Simulated scan of single mutants.
Amino acid sequence: MIPYGRQSLDQADIDAVVAVLQSDWLTQGPTIERFEQAMAERCEADFAVAVCNATAALHIACLAAGLGPGDRLWTTPNTFLASANCGRYCGADVDFVDIDPLTWNLDANALALKLEQSERDGTLPKVLVAVAFSGQSCDMRRIAELAERYGFTVIEDASHAVGASYAGRPVGCGEFAAMTVFSFHPVKIITSAEGGMVLTNRPELAERLQRLRSHGMTRDSQQMTEASHGPWYYQQVELGFNYRITDLQAALGLSQLSKLEGFIERRRELAARYDRLLADLPLTLPGPQSEAESAWHLYVVRLHLDAINLSHRQVFEGLRAAGVGVNLHYIPVHLQPYYREQGFAEGDFPQAERYYAQAISLPLFPLLSDEQQDHVVEHLRRLVLEE
């Protein structure tokens, strides 16, 4: 079975992890800081805070933004659950903004209209989680302008977008978002097995993120309520979490980061090749977002079901039967039972629901060979052109 995504590891990655295993540090050691510094430098950000996964990163980013009970978080329905759940973890209400029919990202025009109505209703969001779906940023320039006008904090969920760029600068640079979140899950652009990171240019946010990932503790005397008792002393100054990453994970992430450019180059080659090979089929191919250069975590196509004799499910299952491990990103979050209990229903976000009824994620990862990609295309072609 050709998976839709998988990690790309080599001997250098293994050696990096073994070196930590043979060192004095396994958990909270110097490799974490080196990983953070390297990622901040690559993304042209001032601060990077590594955590155990991207869900934890989203949670503490929301807390650092001051999100709490009585507040509102908005995001896209076309995302993984964590982009919405992070708001619920903070006790906030969650709402959604429908997707752009061309890019499948959160629609900045729909956001502008919703903000106008919410200002009249007194229901403006405190945080917007703008998801860089498939590796491509939203219209972040417009979103940043709206954030300035309406006074909400932008967190870019760039879990798919390590190595992507927007407006000529790396995603994570902080020009259009107060904080940016990355994921290092095995199917993402680079991996630390599990892991996440929050990037920001604001020292007060970085300071709070560092506390929140480690039980709300500090050893900084300037953050303490009284003088230190000695070199062993620490204080818990707020309620935090054990969201720390380990040196083992950071070593793998740091090794992977050294190969990022090659990973991105191969992903872009494969995406361009899909574009060429699928151009004549009854499919909608991924649409570009102005100013965005995708990292191509996913390559998603939408079936023209009115021109295909098989159903969405039949095409999906036909590809699986042919050894092509396709997937579907994503089931609209508002249709999950938990969010239906919050009052959402079918028809609330029609673009996202229409997308879900047509979308299939094709295999895309750096180790995917041209021959494997040809196999994917051959079987997709047979299914969508079946008489």
Rank of each mutant, 00 (worst) to 15 (best):
L277F: 03
V187R: 12
Q372F: 08
D370K: 04
Q289D: 14
I60T: 09
A38C: 01
G68Q: 09
A250N: 00
V301E: 12
Q372P: 01
W74L: 13
L367F: 02
L383S: 00
V17T: 00
S228Q: 07
D348K: 00
G262I: 09
D121A: 11
E261Q: 06
L239F: 12
T191Q: 08
L281Q: 07
A206N: 05
L248N: 03
R6K: 15
A193E: 15
P3Y: 00
F80A: 15
Q210R: 15
Q336H: 13
L281Y: 02
E116L: 14
L298H: 13
T76N: 07
I190K: 02
A61P: 00
H229V: 12
F96D: 01
L63S: 04
F176D: 07
T180A: 07
C138P: 00
T153M: 08
I60S: 01
Q37V: 08
K114Q: 15
F182V: 00
A279Q: 14
S369E: 12
T76Q: 04
A322R: 08
L305W: 05
H304P: 06
A45E: 09
I143Y: 03
A54K: 11
A250L: 02
A64L: 00
R313N: 03
C173F: 09
W232V: 06
M140C: 11
E387G: 12
D46Q: 14
Q210W: 10
R72V: 13
H329Y: 13
F365K: 04
D220V: 08
L335R: 13
L385M: 02
L252K: 03
V300M: 14
R34S: 03
A359T: 08
A45Y: 01
H215S: 06
L111T: 00
G5M: 12
A177S: 07
R244Y: 03
K114V: 04
G287Q: 10
G174N: 01
R320H: 12
T153A: 13
G230V: 04
S290V: 15
A50V: 02
G230T: 10
D95H: 06
S255L: 00
R169P: 06
G262H: 05
P332A: 11
E207Y: 04
K114D: 12
P363R: 06
Q7E: 14
M197R: 01
G135V: 08
F349V: 10
E265K: 15
D306V: 02
E44M: 13
A357S: 14
A56I: 03
I360Y: 01
A84K: 04
R313T: 12
S83V: 09
L270D: 03
H329S: 10
E226V: 14
G29Y: 03
A167H: 09
L310Q: 08
G66A: 03
E156P: 02
Y233M: 12
S165L: 00
D13Q: 11
V326G: 02
F349S: 12
T180I: 03
A271L: 06
K259Q: 07
I143F: 02
I2C: 05
V300G: 03
T123V: 07
R211I: 05
I99H: 05
Q358R: 14
A147Q: 02
Q7R: 14
G262N: 02
F184R: 03
Y150V: 04
M39N: 00
G70V: 01
P186R: 04
